[in-house]
Simulated assay, not measured.
Amino acid sequence: MPVQGKICGLSDQTSVDTAVSHGARFIGLVFYPSSPRYIDPELAAQLASNVPDNVDKVGLFVDPDDFLIQTVLESVKLDWIQLHGSESPDRVRVIRQKFGIRVLKAVKISDKADFEEAKSYEKVADMLLFDAKAPKNMANALPGGNGLVFDWRMMQGLEFSIPWMLAGGLTAENVAEAVKISGAEIVDTSSGVESEPGRKDPAAIAAFLAALAEIER
């Protein structure tokens, strides 16, 4: 089975079209105002309007209240809500039940103990996402999309009861190694396909998805 790819933080039509035409399984739209990848619901609706049904649209939120989620959903038909903040398992459960949309919960990783936190979300989320945890002394760190990589070897031997996605500093150059070491079947990139924070590089998107297509599992 081919490795599936998610291109996150898309903010212009060319990048969306490139991701879709080169085989992305998921596209990510960021609704976190502090992110350089943030877009408003109106633009998100335009970008999502021609995305085919076989490509899932994921809305990224960070510790959102219900009003923000509802406001976005009134404009954009999302297939997934991605929670990339410090949402508790109970909060994840409430969001999933209230809005009736699949939830992708991000867990930040710096050491193997962080995977224990992930276990607490298995019964309330539909998928997990493992991203690199930013060090406390990192200036202007974001909840995700910092271009950091964690040690994929920590994932060897781990099992989860729901699907999971690997993120954190993935590029066309390192994604094959990441998949080989971690066993990931789905991968996510954002900063790894950018020319600068918030500006996607269509050539890098195409190269990343081409690299996925060449991985033999």
Rank of each mutant, 00 (worst) to 15 (best):
V107A: 06
V72L: 09
T71P: 07
V124F: 02
K77D: 10
S86R: 08
L142Y: 01
A134G: 08
K112L: 10
G85K: 07
K123Q: 11
D63P: 07
L104F: 08
E116S: 14
E116V: 13
R102M: 12
L68H: 10
F61Y: 05
A118W: 04
K136P: 14
V94N: 05
R102H: 12
Q97L: 13
S86Q: 07
G59I: 02
F61R: 01
Q97P: 06
M138T: 03
G100V: 05
L68Y: 09
K105N: 10
Q82R: 06
F115K: 00
K133S: 10
D66N: 11
F99H: 10
P135F: 06
Q82A: 14
V94R: 05
V76L: 08
D114S: 10
A139T: 05
F99V: 14
Q97A: 14
M127S: 14
D63Q: 13
M138E: 01
D114K: 09
K105Y: 04
S110K: 12
D114V: 11
S86V: 06
Y121D: 03
A141D: 02
Q82I: 15
F115V: 04
S120L: 13
V58K: 00
F99Q: 08
V124E: 03
T71R: 13
M138Q: 06
F61V: 08
V62I: 11
E87H: 07
N137F: 12
